[in-house]
Design a binder for these strands. Structure first.
Length: 434
RNA sequence: CGGGGUGUAGCUCAGUAUGGUUAGAGUAUCUGGUUUGGGACCAGAGGGCCGAAGGUUCGAGUCCUUUCACCCCGACCA
């Protein structure tokens, strides 16, 4: 993409209502903009990042044997009344009426819809197990949306549901999904921990959360420094007061605090702040029983499905990457999430030699399917550099005054290192890096 | 949902205690010029139903009533 033709409205000024780095930089960098409380538009750059994350999620799930579907976002209220969740979820469900005054709900999650879909279509143990997922918009009418994409009302979430003939098989799938989630978050380049968690309103017997470690995380988790044990503090402290007092503490305070008890492995336990980006639940037959969704077992006897459910906050991940990867100048995208891998910056577009080299490199990288931006705008050097840092391209090729000496520079966004490369070998050098 | 706050130019904000010329600044945008290695400089221009609706008044951005929106703290939650 040519910068001169792109729609990337960056700003120098910090929007007044954004407090977190991810919120500020995603708005300042022209990735998103706010439409209303907890409602965000994804601009071209934000959309690219969102789609990259979605693609990785899909790829790993498909590889693990899951099948993607897409359920209708608007659902009849009756679906929720049958399961009792119309009552249970209360005002968090946004209800609307159509022209006939029939009531509908903007889906906050889809256990009911997925069970209804499978019910009477999967009727034999021979058809099990089955794991269906979708990556679709969700709406939860949060009492208080905040933190930009981290806690919006409308958000993109991957929700998966698996159906099994036995508890053992459900647990096997649960472990498979845990491993798959680890692959996904590792591919995204995130530093994360898997922790034991509360099942909350969704219900079920066992659940695990996946937390991206970040100072601004809303959850407090306990992690072992030696092994991979971790737990949400909600699961280990008895009273709500204890949890609340911990949540009130600042990150610095928590960082230095150790828990007296040791981990089962003997390692030290410490507090961390985390952003919940994934949650997997062992549901059992809670929903299949309530909605009378049965299959016939080996003896021809009807039994309710054993189920598990798996969520990943896709739009929340966009912000999580930045919460974990930024500096005072802006975003630092991981390679898997960067909107463009390379930014070719022509320092002065009035210099013909610079333009010629920039255009040639742009064409060559495109031919190799490297995602590349060509900054061919009339701005000055400083402006373009600030802009590139704000947006967070992993690499910026600076074609400037050193070209007179046959040199260009590669600027590494993460390390902020700037190293000179011969103009004739810049293409090969970039291909090594990406 | 309780408590607090804010709505004035695309954005960040003055102006409102005490009503009174033509509503300002910075930034962004456009024009011209200068400049070209870290959001540069000079000159000029455009841009506003002062959140909305009522009311008080000779006169309302400013006072009163109602309403909507957004933000912050808390409770709740992916």
């Amino acid at each position: 993409m040519r910068r001169s033709r792109a729609f990337i409205p960056t700003t120098k000024e910090v929007p007044s209502d954004a407090t977190l780095p991810s919120h500020q930089f995603l708005i300042r960098g022209g990735f998103i903009n706010q439409q209303g409380a907890g409602l965000y538009n994804f601009l071209p750059l934000g959309k690219i990042v969102l789609e990259k994350i979605r693609a990785i999620v899909k790829e790993e799930l498909d590889r693990a044997g899951c099948s993607e579907v897409q359920l209708s976002f608007v659902t009849p209220i009756g679906l929720w009344e049958r399961s009792g969740r119309s009552e249970a979820m209360g005002k968090e469900m946004l209800r609307i009426a159509d022209r006939h005054q029939n009531e509908f709900v903007l889906s906050p999650t889809n256990e009911e819809a997925m069970v209804e879909l499978v019910k009477n279509r999967v009727t034999s143990y021979k058809d099990l197990p089955l794991n269906l997922y979708q990556i679709n918009t969700k709406f939860r009418d949060e009492a208080r949306p905040r933190y930009g994409l981290l806690r919006g009302r409308e958000f993109l979430m991957k929700d998966g549901y698996s159906f099994h003939a036995s508890t053992e098989d459900m647990i096997r799938e649960f472990h498979l999904m845990e491993a798959t989630y680890k692959k996904i978050f590792t591919r995204l380049g995130l530093n994360f921990r898997v922790v034991a968690a509360d099942s909350g309103a969704i219900g079920g017997t066992g659940s695990k959360e996946f937390h991206v470690l970040a100072d601004s995380g809303e959850d407090t988790i306990v992690v072992c420094e030696a092994c991979d044990y971790g737990a949400n503090i909600e699961t280990i402290f008895q009273t709500k007061e204890e949890v609340d007092s911990l949540n009130a503490k600042s990150y610095e305070e928590l960082q230095t605090k150790r828990i007296d008890e040791k981990c089962a492995c003997g390692g030290k336990l410490s507090f961390k702040k985390g952003i919940e980006v994934g949650h997997i639940f062992q549901l059992g037959d809670k929903y299949s029983k309530a909605l009378e969704a049965n299959f016939n077992d080996e003896n021809g006897k009807p039994r309710p499905f054993e189920m598990a459910t798996f969520g990943i906050g896709v739009s929340r991940l966009v912000a999580s990457v930045i919460e974990q990867n930024h500096d005072e100048n802006g975003c630092i995208w991981t390679k898997a999430t960067a909107p463009y891998m390379v930014n070719i910056m022509i320092s002065n577009i009035k210099e013909e030699a610079q333009v010629t080299l920039g255009e040639a490199l742009y064409a060559a990288l495109q031919a190799e399917n490297v995602s590349v931006m060509l900054d061919d705008t009339k701005e000055r050097f400083g402006f373009k550099m600030k802009d590139a840092e704000l947006i967070g391209f992993p690499y910026t090729v600076i074609i400037g005054k050193e070209l007179a000496n046959g040199l260009v520079q590669i600027f590494d966004r993460r390390t902020k290192e700037n190293f000179a490369v011969g103009a004739h070998e810049i293409f090969e050098k970039i291909m090594e890096l990406v």
